[in-house]
Computed example of a mutant assay.
Amino acid sequence: MYRHQRHIYDASRKFYLLGRDQLIAGLTPPPGGTVLEIGCGTGRNLIAIARAYPACACYGLDVSSEMLTTARQSVERARMSDRIVLRQADATAFDPQALFGQPGFDRIVISYALSMIPPWRGVVGEAVRRLSPGGELHIVDFGDQRDLPAPFRAVLNRWLALFHVTPRADLAAALDDAAQAAGARADTVSLHRGYATLAKLRRAA
């Protein structure tokens, strides 16, 4: 699907992938910390994260070789090849030590990827498992849409389906379950009348 879309992905998605910059502003990783983006796509977020937090090392994984080709080109253009490491991997099961030489991460980001991954709960569970002690998982994705006008909601969902996107209305509940299982704490915020959900899970130190 991304063989052709990757060339216009960032230009088109900036108008409706809301909350990404808000997520980045709230990361506040520790100095010298590590940040992983799961489903890094074109590298747009990782480049923004690297610029916002120059003391941190950034890593990205994606299952799409096409997207990673674009991401590597973008990272090179931004002159951040020494700051951002990219690898191809399945988000439901990956070995951070083998991929990146890291046992875990201080911050893990998932931005508008869960709505495109059928086994998305497995991705959440794997992300929590890969957090360092005291680490945080930050998620932004399409929300439950509960306060959006019904006609707009219907058109939005039909349009998203064309791109194989399924909003996860039960994301907050799933994150609460993952937090409880890991002895962590989760918080979710609804954005733009439920259009998007911004969530954070913090693992105990």
Results as ranks from 00 to 15, higher is better:
residue 2 Y to C: 02
residue 2 Y to F: 15
residue 4 H to V: 13
residue 5 Q to I: 13
residue 8 I to L: 11
residue 10 D to R: 07
residue 13 R to Y: 04
residue 13 R to K: 12
residue 15 F to N: 09
residue 24 I to K: 00
residue 27 L to Y: 02
residue 27 L to W: 02
residue 28 T to V: 01
residue 33 G to V: 05
residue 36 L to K: 01
residue 39 G to W: 10
residue 40 C to N: 03
residue 41 G to F: 08
residue 51 R to P: 01
residue 51 R to M: 00
residue 51 R to N: 01
residue 52 A to L: 05
residue 54 P to W: 06
residue 57 A to K: 14
residue 63 V to M: 07
residue 63 V to N: 04
residue 64 S to M: 03
residue 65 S to E: 14
residue 66 E to R: 00
residue 68 L to H: 08
residue 68 L to F: 06
residue 73 Q to A: 14
residue 76 E to C: 08
residue 77 R to A: 03
residue 81 S to H: 04
residue 82 D to R: 08
residue 83 R to Y: 03
residue 85 V to R: 14
residue 88 Q to D: 05
residue 88 Q to I: 07
residue 89 A to T: 09
residue 89 A to G: 04
residue 93 A to I: 00
residue 96 P to I: 13
residue 97 Q to W: 12
residue 99 L to V: 06
residue 103 P to K: 15
residue 104 G to M: 05
residue 118 P to N: 03
residue 121 R to W: 07
residue 121 R to C: 14
residue 123 V to I: 10
residue 125 G to E: 14
residue 125 G to K: 12
residue 127 A to F: 11
residue 131 L to H: 10
residue 132 S to D: 12
residue 132 S to L: 15
residue 133 P to T: 14
residue 137 L to P: 04
residue 137 L to E: 07
residue 138 H to K: 02
residue 138 H to C: 05
residue 138 H to D: 00
residue 140 V to M: 06
residue 142 F to Y: 15
residue 143 G to Q: 02
residue 143 G to P: 03
residue 144 D to S: 15
residue 144 D to Q: 05
residue 145 Q to E: 15
residue 149 P to Y: 07
residue 151 P to F: 13
residue 153 R to M: 08
residue 155 V to D: 08
residue 160 L to Y: 07
residue 161 A to N: 04
residue 164 H to T: 14
residue 165 V to R: 11
residue 167 P to I: 11
residue 167 P to G: 09
residue 169 A to K: 12
residue 169 A to Q: 12
residue 170 D to W: 05
residue 173 A to V: 09
residue 174 A to V: 06
residue 175 L to S: 01
residue 175 L to T: 10
residue 176 D to P: 07
residue 178 A to C: 11
residue 181 A to C: 12
residue 182 A to D: 12
residue 184 A to I: 14
residue 187 D to T: 14
residue 190 S to H: 05
residue 191 L to K: 02
residue 197 T to M: 11
residue 201 L to V: 15
residue 204 A to P: 01
residue 204 A to E: 13
